[in-house]
């Protein structure tokens, strides 16, 4: 299980939790598991999110590996300027 930190606007869509635990070995698997466990998150994740894994911001790559003890944050979808 990987602990995923949600930004505060998402917490109401995940039973009020700030951190949720889901199964997954990649960023994509974690996102899919989040939607499966908390369907209310689906619009936000479908719209696009970025993910921070151990401080490294993954802008848009579902195949990045995630260790079980990794620190994972969902972030608003980042884009360039």
């Amino acid at each position: 299980m990987v602990a995923v930190h949600l930004w505060s606007g998402l917490r109401a869509l995940a039973d009020g939790q700030e951190v949720v635990e889901v199964e997954g070995e990649t960023v994509g698997q974690l996102l899919d598991a989040l939607v499966a466990a908390y369907p209310g998150l689906e619009p936000a994740i479908r719209r696009g999110v970025s993910v921070s894994v151990d401080g490294q911001i993954i802008a848009n790559n579902r195949h990045v590996k995630v260790a079980p003890d990794a620190e994972v944050f969902l972030l608003q979808r980042l884009y360039a300027g």
Binding site: W7, D54, G55, E71, F73, L75
Partner: peptide
């Protein structure tokens, strides 16, 4: 190592 105001720790 500082935790950013947007969540993760800075590299």
């Amino acid at each position: 190592g500082t935790r950013a105001t947007f969540g993760p720790k800075f590299p």
